[in-house]
Design a binder for these strands. Structure first.
Length: 105
DNA sequence: CGGTTGACCAAGT
DNA sequence: GACTTGGCCAACC
C-alpha cells in the first residue's frame, strides 16, 4: 500500500539512519534536519510507521531527555537503548549531554 | 476545507 | 520541577 506523503516519512528515516549507534536524537533536532519545525509531525510519522528494525526509532527521544513514546512500549525502548551502550537513569531519563547527537546543518 | 489529535517544544507562571 | 498556553506540521474525520 502506497503512502500518501512518503517524502516526509522517508526523509525522517534517512535522517534517523544517520544517527550513530550509542547516540540518540530529539524530535526537534530531527525535524530541524528535515527542514521543518513540526516536531509533532516527526513523532507522528514514526508512530504511524512501526518499521522495525529498519529504522532505529528507539534512538529518538524528547528534548527533556525522556524516552517520549514508543509504538512497541517504553519498556522495549529502554532495553534497546541500554543494549546500544546508553545508560538510562532510574527515572527512565537519558543524559542528552552525553548521548545527544546533533546533525550537521 | 475546518476542526481535532498526536511518540512534541518553548516560554511563562 | 510541575502546570498552562501557544505554536508547529502532518494525518484523520
Amino acid at each position: 500500500m502506497a503512502q500518501k506523503t512518503p517524502a516526509f516519512r522517508e526523509r525522517c528515516y534517512a535522517i534517523l539512519k544517520r544517527v550513530p549507534r550509542g547516540k540518540v536524537t530529539t524530535y526537534k533536532e530531527l525535524a530541524r534536519a528535515m527542514g521543518t519545525r513540526g516536531c509533532r509531525a516527526v513523532g507522528n510519522a514514526l508512530h504511524v510507521n512501526p518499521y522495525w528494525p529498519k529504522v532505529p526509532c528507539h534512538r529518538v527521544v524528547t528534548s527533556s531527555g525522556d524516552l517520549g513514546g514508543f509504538a512497541q512500549g517504553r519498556r522495549r525502548k529502554m532495553l534497546l537503548l541500554t543494549a546500544e551502550g546508553i545508560e538510562i537513569s532510574p527515572q527512565g531519563k537519558i543524559d542528552l549531554k552525553r548521548y545527544l547527537y546533533r546533525f550537521p546543518i
